[in-house]
Structures are given as C-alpha cells and as structure tokens.
Amino acid sequence: MRRPPSAPREPVPARLRAPLVALLAALVAASAVLLGAGSAEAAGYRYWSFWEGNGKNWEYATQGPSLLRPDDGAVQGFRFAVSEDSGDAAQPRRAPDFGAICADTPAQDGRKRVALV
C-alpha cells in the first residue's frame, strides 16, 4: 500500500540504521578513491628539495637536513619540487638573506640562529 504524498515518513527502524550508515560510509569512501584515481600525473620525482643559502643565492644541498650542522646565521630552504633531477628543481621563493629574515633575533652565547625558508 502506498502512502499519500502528504503523509509523514516513518523513521528508519534502529536495527537498520547501523547497516545503512555503514553502507553509506563505504559508498562515500569508494567514490573518493575512484574520483582520485584519475588525477593528473606529473613527469619526474615529487619531493621536498633542500637548499642552503650562501648569502646571496641558493645552492642545492649536498647533504640532507638530518646530516647538516649549520653555523650561526645560516639560511636553509625547502621547496616542493617535481623534477627529473636536482638540476631543474625550483629554488625557494625568498632570497637567502639572514639579515632580512632574522633582523630582530639577537645573537646569544651557546645558541645558533638558523633561518628556514
């Protein structure tokens, strides 16, 4: 028997709510995976490139940040890159000028000041 359009809807029985919610969650998750599968692919490696400032320019770091021990006043930079090799990786956007970045940070005995860009 069909209910008239103006009749109020009956609530979903409690025993059916949990399976319906689980089904809905599974459908949402599956659609997110399927929609994400068609994303564009860029040529090359995707990674955070690591740079050292020499006062005026950026130089691609020859050691990773876990091995490098910077001096006081050093500038280090990171930039997300999609590149075939380090030769075409994009440099950090800001200039490696420690004085401009950390002008308000005074030197202290026993401490190092390192600017991160």
Rank of each mutant, 00 (worst) to 15 (best):
A90H: 10
R69Y: 10
A90Q: 13
Q63C: 09
E84F: 10
A61D: 01
Q91A: 15
Q63K: 12
A74Q: 03
Q76N: 12
T62C: 08
F78Y: 13
D85C: 07
Q63N: 11
L67H: 09
A89G: 02
G87Q: 11
R69W: 10
D88G: 07
D72P: 05
A61Q: 02
G77Q: 02
F78N: 06
T62Y: 09
E84D: 14
A74Y: 03
S83P: 01
D71G: 13
A89Q: 02
L67D: 14
S86R: 05
L68Y: 08
G73Y: 00
A61G: 02
A61F: 04
G87A: 10
S86F: 01
A61N: 02
V75L: 04
A90F: 09
V82P: 00
L68S: 06
D88E: 14
D71Y: 10
D72H: 14
F80E: 09
G73C: 08
D71R: 14
R69L: 12
R69Q: 14
G73V: 06
F80A: 09
A89F: 01
A81V: 02
V75S: 00
D71E: 15
D72N: 15
P70G: 02
V75Q: 01
T62M: 09
A74F: 05
L67P: 07
L67Q: 14
D72R: 07
A74W: 03
P65E: 07
Q76K: 11
Q91Y: 07
S83V: 00
S66M: 15
V82I: 11
T62N: 12
D88I: 03
F78R: 07
Q76G: 10
S66H: 15
P70Q: 05
G73A: 08
A90M: 11
L68A: 07
G77K: 01
F78L: 12
A90L: 13
G77S: 05
V82T: 11
G73Q: 03
R69E: 14
S83K: 00
S83E: 02
P70C: 05
R69T: 12
S86Y: 02
D72E: 08
S66G: 12
R79C: 09
V82Q: 09
P70Y: 06
P65F: 09
F78E: 08
D88F: 02
L67N: 11
A90C: 08
P65G: 04
R69P: 04
Q76L: 15
D88R: 05
S66C: 12
S66A: 15
S83F: 01
Q76P: 06
F78G: 03
P70A: 05
R79D: 03
A74D: 12
A74V: 04
D88A: 07
Q91R: 13
A89S: 15
L68W: 05
G77F: 00
D85E: 08
S83Q: 03
T62H: 10
G73H: 02
E84R: 12
G87F: 06
F80N: 07
D88S: 11
S66E: 15
P65I: 06
G77C: 04
T62G: 13
T62W: 09
G64L: 06
Q63G: 06
G87D: 10
L67E: 12
E84K: 15
D71S: 14
G73D: 06
E84Q: 13
S86D: 04
Q91P: 08
D71T: 11
L68P: 01
R69S: 13
S86K: 03
D85N: 13
D72I: 07
F80Q: 09
G73K: 01
R79Y: 08
E84V: 11
F80R: 10
F78M: 11
